[in-house]
Computed example of a mutant assay.
Amino acid sequence: MPILPPADELHQRIAELRAEHRGLDEQIARLAANPDDDLEAKRLKRRKLQLKDSIFKLECMLIPDEPA
């Protein structure tokens, strides 16, 4: 069974990822006004999805295992 980092470290990392996720929202909104940056917008959206997946995985690590 893998050793999990302490819960406070997980909470801190989740907060950092959420902040980056919000920042990408703002960048994507600015790029939406300029259709010439479509490739950059796609790259940012892909990164945003990666962050969402990472946040979900970390949040799952915080859920205690239920006994069988």
Rank of each mutant, 00 (worst) to 15 (best):
R30E: 05
L17C: 04
P64N: 14
Q50G: 15
I14E: 00
Q50T: 14
Q27M: 03
D25Q: 07
R22F: 04
I28G: 02
P64K: 13
A19I: 11
E40Q: 13
D8C: 10
R43W: 09
I55D: 02
K45A: 11
E26K: 06
D37F: 06
L49S: 15
A29L: 07
N34Y: 13
L39A: 15
K48Q: 15
R18E: 03
L51T: 01
E59D: 00
D8H: 12
E26F: 05
D65R: 13
F56C: 10
R46L: 15
A68P: 08
D53W: 12
K42L: 14
S54C: 09
E59A: 01
L51S: 05
P2Y: 07
M61L: 14
H11F: 06
L44T: 01
A15H: 01
R22S: 09
K42E: 14
R30K: 02
K52Q: 09
L62E: 10
H11N: 11
F56Q: 14
A7H: 13
L62V: 10
A33R: 12
R43V: 11
R13E: 04
A7S: 15
C60W: 09
R18A: 02
L17S: 03
R22I: 11
G23Q: 08
K42P: 08
H11Q: 11
R46F: 14
Q27N: 05
L10W: 02
D25M: 03
K42D: 13
L24W: 07
A41P: 01
Q12K: 09
D38V: 15
N34A: 13
R46I: 15
P35S: 00
H21Q: 13
K48E: 12
L31G: 00
A32M: 05
L4W: 08
D36L: 13
K52I: 04
A19H: 13
R47S: 05
G23S: 08
I14G: 01
E16C: 04
D53P: 14
E26Y: 05
K45M: 06
L49Y: 14
Q12N: 08
E16V: 08
E66V: 10
I3G: 07
P6Y: 01
E20M: 06
L24I: 06
H21T: 11
E40A: 10
E9I: 13
R18D: 04
